[in-house]
């Protein structure tokens, strides 16, 4: 696993309306969205839930390894949305908007309105 350079991160709080989670109840704060800009350390396109691991900094500038989840999605459902095992390359820069983990752990959930992943050139993923 290659450790990408820290690109920098921006963490924003925002009140949003999001769809209720199925299977993720209480794990993420659906009322907030955080924005992370960082580099891809790992993309595990595997069941039960694909996870994107991002090297980014928190709001205090502390570098952390963030787990990016895609709701309760699994490989079949993400594949139908256009994701694949090659969707993310280690070292590429992406910006993620997602709901933060309620535990305060470095994890975000990309699910529902206002969330998503954008590449460095501005293209949305997938």
């Amino acid at each position: 696993m290659k450790s990408g350079a820290l690109i920098g991160a921006l963490v924003l709080g925002a009140v949003v309306t999001a769809a209720a989670h199925h299977g993720q109840a209480g794990l993420f704060d659906d009322t907030r969205i955080v924005e992370l800009k960082g580099t891809v350390k790992q993309w595990s396109f595997i069941n039960p839930h694909p996870i994107l691991v991002l090297d980014a900094a928190d709001e205090k500038g502390v570098r952390k390894e963030w787990d990016v989840y895609f709701g309760p999605a699994a490989v079949p459902s993400l594949r139908r949305q256009g994701f694949s095992g090659d969707t993310f390359k280690v070292g590429e820069t992406v910006t993620v908007k997602g709901h933060p983990a309620t535990t305060g752990s470095p994890g975000v959930d990309v699910l529902g309105k206002g969330t998503g992943v954008v590449r460095a050139d501005g293209r949305s993923v997938p």
Binding site: I46, N47, I51, D67, V75, R79, S105
Partner: peptide, 23 residues
């Protein structure tokens, strides 16, 4: 009309990684 996406092939390491956000 879509065929089943099999095998599921659950990965324990990936499953356990979910516990990072569970207290």
């Amino acid at each position: 009309k879509e065929p089943l996406s099999l095998p599921w092939n659950c990965d324990p390491a990936s499953a356990q990684r979910n516990l990072h956000v569970v207290k």
